[in-house]
Design a protein around this nucleic acid. Structure first.
Lengths: 116, 116
DNA sequence: AGGCAATATTGATGTTCATCGATATATGTT
DNA sequence: AACATATATCGATGAACATCAATATTGCCT
């Protein structure tokens, strides 16, 4: 346990007892992890990259299955995760669904890491 | 390293005919995902935060188990993941193990997201 | 030496997750 | 209307993972 912040030589002093800088709270950590988990997947990283470099009016699913070498249901599943976490936006035009990057969403996710 | 930014045969076909920017290659995506996966966990985010705001000479494990409300083996396991992925550095002084943030490692991880 | 405290490792367990095949839901076409 | 295409959803399966209890290792102290 060592519940004693006894100042031995200032070496063993715990950072938490008097430290004003608050560590990430549990709820905030869970929230941040949820977003980062959506990004931390090889195929979803590639999806984000392809959509980001793709045409401004969106990339359709049919153009995503081939580069990823994945089945259509799997790609659709990953896209849903990215949309649900606020990273991609989905717009249906006719039979096709076009995905675009939500502006600023990637920077916001990156800030969760740099501003820990 | 950064051997070949554009060398790809089966994957990362250009998202559109006019788009020359290459999508993230599979190997790079797997590598990036491995690092981001190490971060994308609520408890590991809190560990990084606590260590970052902790004393410059390191935070010992005994000061980490309590705020996380986790058993010592579990904390040790998470710390190992963070060390193996290059985010934390471990220095043993006597019986204690002190963990410090590897300088620049968080910014490098964040760059994997912003520079997709 | 023996004993104690801090940390790491091992083995097991329940959960989450990525992937797929099959099917459902549109939407356009003939 | 029936049909074809594009995408989404469902159910199942195997792998990855987080957590814990028990044990091993390391270093200090008497």
């Amino acid at each position: 346990m060592t519940a004693t912040p006894v100042a031995d030589d200032a070496a063993s002093a715990a950072c938490c007892a008097t430290c004003a800088a608050p560590a990430l709270a549990e709820a905030a950590a869970r929230e941040a992890a949820r977003l980062l988990k959506a990004i931390a997947d090889p195929n979803r990283l590639r999806l984000l990259s392809i959509v980001k470099h793709g045409p401004a009016d969106g990339t359709c699913v049919c153009d995503l299955t081939e580069p990823l070498q994945l089945g259509q249901p799997t790609v659709s599943h990953h896209l849903k995760i990215l949309v649900d976490s606020g990273l991609l936006a989905r717009e249906k035009r006719g039979t096709w669904a076009y995905y675009t990057l939500v502006p600023g969403s990637l920077d916001k996710a990156a800030a969760l890491i740099t501003e820990l």
